[in-house]
Every structure is written in C-alpha cells, then in structure tokens.
Simulated scan of single mutants.
Amino acid sequence: MSTPPAVAQPVLAPAPSLRRVLAFLGIALAVSTALSLPFAFGALPPAAVGLAVPLAQLSPLLAALLVRRRGAPWWRALALAVPSWRALGVAALAAIAAFVAVPLARVLIGLGAGAPPSADALPLSSLLLAVPAVLVMQSLFAIGEEAGWRGWLHGELRPLGFWPMSLLIGAMWAVWHAPIVLALGLAPREAVTYLGTIVAVAPLLSALREVSGTAWAAVLGHGLLNSARVAIEQNVLGPLEPGTAWLLDLSSWALWLAVAAVVLHLGGRRRATTPGAVSGAALPVR
C-alpha cells in the first residue's frame, strides 16, 4: 500500500503584539514631532523642510529595528530580502502603471469638470528629464519609511487580513505625518487632502509589498508617488475651485483603493498559477 503524501500545513504568523506596535508608532512619532518643533516655533523657515524630512524618514526604520522580534535576521524582519526577482519585477511594472494611470485619470476628471489647464506647466521634455532623477532620490529617501511601514509593521499586522492591516497602517502613517503638516501651517483643505491621500495610497503600497514579498516594491511605489504623480498632477491642471478640488480628491482616493484591490487580486492569481511561486501563508482578505 502506498503512503499518502503529506499535507503541507499552513504557516501561521504570531498574533500582532500591541505593545510592539505602539512602541513602534511612539518612537517614529517622537522623532517626527521633534524634527517638526523648530518649524512650529519659527526657529527654522519652511524652506528648510527638505533637510528635516529625510531625517524623519529614517525614524520608522529605527523604530522597527528596536521593536522587532529577534528570531530572524533584521533585513528579513524588515522585508528587505528579495524572495523572487521575477515577482519584484512584476510588482514594479504594476507600480509604474498605477502611479501613472491614477494621476492621469484625476487630470481627465478635472478637465471634464471644467478645471482650467495649467498656465505655467513645465515642458514635457523637462519633465521627462526631471522625473527619473527625482524618482531615484525619492526612492532612496523612502527606504527608511517603507522598511518600517510596509516592512516590519506590515508583517506584524498581517494576521489581521489585508484591508484592516493596510488601512490601519495608512492611518498610522498619516498620524506620523501630522506633526510636520501642522508645523508648516497647511490650510485645512490642503492638510485633509495631503493626509487623506496618504491613507488612500497605503493599501496600494501594501498590495505591492504583498504580491512581491518584499518592501522594495513599496519603496519604488513611494518614489513614484512623490515623483511621477506629483509631476502629472501639478503640471496639467491650473488652480481649482473648492468644489472641483474636493471632487478630484474623492475620485483619486477611490481610484487608489480600487487599483490596490486590482493589484492584490491579480497578484494572488499569478501566485496561484505560477510554478515555483514563493511559498508562504496566504494573506486573508477581509
């Protein structure tokens, strides 16, 4: 009689540690708040924010290194290993498509709603030269953030299921950004737009991390968010009426969430049909 094949048992991740999560957020928030105080009290001009932000972006990396469990190498705990270069390549293509398509859709919606074209847009040739350089710079700066948010914290909160996990990370990511937003004195509508976009984009970055198995896909997505998206949105449409601005914000937030769902779905189908796909516990979608 032949012996039946052994059934592979699912790999169960440990339950999230509230103490570790709160410690992570507390450390990262303390650093971002401390770096924001000189701007809040006028000791530094707003133009100096470019010096403070890269330092603040290292705080999630620092926090993750301090609170992580010591059972795995630090680069694995922060999802900085690359289990499959092919999966990372597919996620990179998905990131490029998403961070170009959603801003373009926002522009089309704006033009359809009667928004004026920009009167001082940069020439296309200048944008094509500038965006790759800005993308590289912004991606390098994003390593510290993504190693924490979509690296360690994603892995810690993974048992919650994709949507609770990714939206919770987005909410904490927005809270972490809040001190510098308040210190720079952004107008209420600008602050809501800025922080709301952070929450809405977070599931897409989590989906890129999930389908690739590494935080490097989220690093690229973060770089595209701060380069390609900004170039498209700020160089096509002119000043917006409040009603049109809110319409575009709500539309783009919905699009970011929809694209995240598509990337997660297609990435899950690809893993299910690709021989030799990276093994691991399936992420519950809730």
Rank of each mutant, 00 (worst) to 15 (best):
M1K: 13
S2N: 11
P4A: 12
P4N: 08
P5T: 09
P5G: 09
V7C: 10
A8Q: 13
Q9K: 14
P10C: 10
P14M: 10
A15L: 15
A15P: 06
P16G: 08
S17I: 08
S17Q: 11
R19G: 13
R20Q: 15
R20H: 12
V21W: 06
L25K: 00
G26A: 13
L29Q: 02
A30W: 05
V31I: 15
T33L: 15
A34S: 07
L35K: 02
P38S: 10
G42H: 05
P45W: 00
A47C: 09
A48I: 02
L51I: 11
A52R: 00
A52L: 08
A56K: 00
Q57A: 14
P60A: 03
L61P: 01
L61M: 15
L62D: 02
A63F: 06
L65W: 14
L65D: 01
L66N: 07
L66Y: 09
R68S: 08
R69D: 15
R70A: 14
R70K: 14
P73K: 12
P73Q: 11
R76H: 14
L80H: 07
A81C: 08
P83Q: 08
R86T: 14
A87R: 02
L88V: 06
I96T: 10
I96G: 09
F99A: 04
V100E: 06
V100K: 00
P103V: 05
L104Q: 11
L104W: 10
R106H: 11
G112I: 13
G114I: 11
D120V: 03
D120G: 03
L122H: 02
P123K: 08
S125M: 12
S125F: 09
A130Y: 07
A130S: 13
L135T: 05
L135F: 13
S139F: 08
A142F: 06
I143D: 03
E145I: 02
A147T: 07
G151I: 08
L153M: 13
L153E: 02
G155N: 08
L157F: 06
P159N: 05
S166T: 13
A171G: 13
V175E: 02
A178D: 01
V181T: 10
L184A: 04
L186M: 15
A187Q: 14
P188A: 11
E190W: 05
L195C: 05
G196H: 10
T197S: 12
T197F: 06
I198F: 04
V199E: 01
V199N: 02
L205T: 03
S206C: 15
A207E: 02
L208N: 07
R209A: 15
E210M: 04
A218S: 15
A218M: 05
V219T: 03
L220Y: 01
L220W: 01
H222E: 09
H222R: 08
L225H: 12
L225A: 13
L225T: 12
S227A: 12
A228D: 03
A231H: 00
E233Y: 04
V236H: 01
P239R: 03
P239H: 06
E241K: 07
G243I: 11
A245C: 08
A245S: 14
A245D: 14
W246P: 01
L247P: 01
S252L: 12
A254H: 11
L255A: 15
L255N: 04
W256N: 06
V259L: 05
A260Q: 01
V262P: 02
V263W: 00
H265A: 14
G267R: 00
T274G: 05
V278G: 03
S279E: 15
S279V: 13
G280F: 10
G280V: 09
L283W: 08
